[in-house]
């Protein structure tokens, strides 16, 4: 009996890593791209909330959840553009703008989201990879949303884009040294605009995953800071898209561990387990901190 429980916990945690981790993947990849271009967009929490609301609302009104995903990406785009346009002026601090936009977008989403808290919108379907198994645990864990695969494919794609393409190089040059980019004739503001816009769109998609798939309904407490955690995640993922993917899954697993253990009757220290993702953030930050002052992989523009 104990053995069976052990395996169900492991499977539930692995399934949870995918279920809970997916929005982290999108937000952290979006932030990764934005930061690579030399800007920090702390407002992605706002994009996440806005994407969740817009996605749910559009899915409810149009009847098509995929249209909701598109609309969520669009709303993230708009917020990204707003951030980039505000930040391109001299002496405008991108962190302050990010916080302002986060509060603005959350407030706006709460306001326009009011009528959509109660109704049930059509949700994104999941792909059932567990058909072969008779165990409901395995089947539940292998019930995976297509957006997870999009996110998982996005990570190597973004890696390849940044390292191997001309456009990716332009993003990195702009992020490493504005002067060098100027000398090379790269339009700094346009590159940053496009990076922030795309990053914002990713975060919007992450948000609609929350409202349209898991947990699968729009409410004001839906995000509870996941967007901010994903931004922190980028730092210890060393601005590497593949590490962002792994770190997101680790965060998902950490969040799934507490409920999984309690459901088999292991109740030891559940407060501690519920705080696991936050403790993990702090521990990784401390362990990976670098005495020389700058972190490897950090875009050079941040050091100035």
């Amino acid at each position: 009996m104990q053995d069976v429980s052990f395996w169900t916990v492991i499977i539930a945690v692995l399934g949870g890593a995918i279920r809970v981790g997916t929005p982290f993947i999108f937000v952290s990849l979006g932030e990764c791209l934005t930061e690579k271009s030399g800007r920090i967009n702390l407002g992605l929490e706002g994009n996440l909330v806005m994407g969740a609301m817009v996605g749910y609302a559009v899915s409810y009104l149009s009847g098509s959840p995929w249209l909701g995903v598109l609309a969520a990406a669009g709303s993230g785009c708009v917020l990204g553009i707003l951030h980039a346009l505000l930040c391109q002026h001299k002496r405008v601090n991108d962190i302050a703008v990010g916080i302002a936009l986060m509060l603005f977008a959350s407030g706006l989403a709460f306001f326009y989201g009011k009528p959509f808290i109660q109704p049930s919108a059509p949700r994104l379907p999941s792909l059932e990879f567990g058909e072969w198994s008779s165990s409901p645990v395995v089947r539940a864990a292998l019930d995976i949303n297509a957006l997870f695969f999009v996110g998982a494919a996005l990570a190597p794609l973004l890696s390849w884009f940044l390292l191997r393409t001309r456009w990716g190089n332009a993003v990195r040059v702009v992020g490493e040294s504005g002067d060098a980019a100027l000398a090379m004739g790269i339009p700094i503001n346009r590159v940053r605009l496009l990076s922030t816009m795309a990053g914002g769109a990713f975060a919007g998609v992450g948000g609609c995953y929350l409202s349209l798939y898991y947990p699968g309904s729009w409410s004001e407490g839906l995000s509870s800071g996941q967007g901010l955690m994903a931004v922190a995640l980028v730092i210890f993922a060393r601005w590497n898209p593949m590490y962002c993917l792994y770190a997101s899954l680790l965060f998902g697993a950490a969040a799934a561990l507490g409920p999984a253990l309690q459901s088999v009757g292991i109740n030891w220290g559940y407060y501690l387990l519920n705080a696991a993702p936050y403790i993990l953030t702090l521990v990784i930050m401390i362990v990976t901190s670098d005495r020389r002052g700058t972190l490897s992989g950090m875009p050079g523009e941040f050091v100035k």
């Binding site: 949870g16 539940a140 409410s219 409920p259 999984a260 459901s263």
Partner: peptide, 16 residues
């Protein structure tokens, strides 16, 4: 109010 954790708890309980 922690929707993600509530969904995760519900799934875990059903799994068990």
């Amino acid at each position: 109010s922690n929707p993600v954790k509530e969904a995760e708890s519900a799934n875990s309980l059903i799994d068990q």
